[in-house]
Simulated scan of single mutants.
Amino acid sequence: MKLTETNQYVRQMSLIEDASLLPNQFPFSLPVIQNLGHISFHPNVTYIIGENGMGKSTLLEALAVALGFNPEGGSKNFSFSSYASHSDLHELLRVVRGGSRPQDGYFFRAETFYNVATHIEELDQGGFGRKIIDSYGGTSLHEQSHGEAFFAAFMERFAGNGLYILDEPEAALSPIRQLSMLARIDELVEKGSQFIISTHAPLLMAYPDAKILQLDAEGMEEVQLEETQHYSVMKQFFEDRGRLLHHLFQK
């Protein structure tokens, strides 16, 4: 059953202190942090979108770490570190939880999922009993294509009744797989899951009634899919590709 505002897992996120008191250095100098205010999450699906460098991944990483996830991804049982590059932003976040607690949870980060796969291999080599890889379908993630490994996590590891924080999950997915991912999100939402997703993919942003929070140089605002730059650029490309390319290639 879908979560509602009364029983969603994460309700809000805000800064503990006034943004003007933050250090004038990355990531605290980002407009999205300086103008964070209170972010209210949708009970089912919230998208955080924007151009490169706007702070989407930084914000998602801080939220995940504040909730107890490993900065490089995985479930809350993962505690490895390949390279400690995460900021201290999580220490300055106030996260308001909802009335229910998730039975499952996962922080999926596209750029470090290779490290998660390697950690699983290492744990399974020295472990006893059921192997961790069995919960991903049983086939080594390193023996699959990038996209197949991503999809193994989405289809096999995500079990429902969970909180899933996804940072650019479309990175290795074809358009068809992105649509399949959208269907999988719906399956898990119907099983009482909440998603918070950073993405550049208009296909993946199309979940009905989801909240889309767009980051730009001014901060953050809630928008509809059709109002996003991602949608308008793709629409222009498919409706008048020749004109777009003409202007793009002008010397």
Rank of each mutant, 00 (worst) to 15 (best):
P102M: 08
Q34R: 15
G129S: 07
L22Q: 00
I197M: 07
D240V: 11
K76A: 02
V116C: 01
L188H: 10
Q8T: 13
Q194K: 06
M220K: 02
P102V: 15
R101I: 11
A206M: 15
Y9S: 13
Q194G: 07
A64F: 12
Q12F: 13
G53A: 09
L22I: 00
H247P: 00
E170R: 11
A171F: 06
L93S: 01
F237R: 04
K211H: 14
H142R: 09
P27M: 03
S145Q: 13
L141D: 07
L166W: 09
A149P: 07
G99N: 10
S100D: 09
F195W: 06
G55K: 00
G127C: 04
S174A: 10
V45Q: 04
T228C: 04
I16L: 14
M155Q: 08
K56W: 08
I165C: 03
G126Y: 07
T46S: 15
Q194P: 10
Q229Y: 05
T199H: 09
F107V: 02
E227W: 08
V96N: 05
I185Y: 13
M205F: 13
M13I: 14
E239S: 04
A110E: 04
L225K: 02
E143I: 03
Q8L: 15
S193A: 15
I49L: 12
Q103G: 12
I33L: 01
G99P: 05
A152H: 14
E239F: 05
P23H: 06
G53R: 11
R243N: 08
G55R: 03
F237T: 11
G37M: 14
T6N: 13
V45R: 07
E72R: 02
Y106E: 08
L166E: 02
M234L: 05
P71T: 06
G55I: 02
M205G: 10
S100V: 00
F26T: 02
Q8C: 13
G160I: 06
E111K: 13
T228V: 06
V96M: 03
A149D: 03
I185A: 01
E5C: 06
L92C: 03
E227T: 02
R184M: 04
I48W: 10
F78C: 03
E156L: 01
F26R: 00
S20L: 01
I212F: 12
D186C: 07
I212M: 08
L21W: 00
A117P: 03
F41N: 05
T139A: 08
N35I: 08
I176N: 09
H86Q: 09
K76P: 01
G147V: 11
G160C: 08
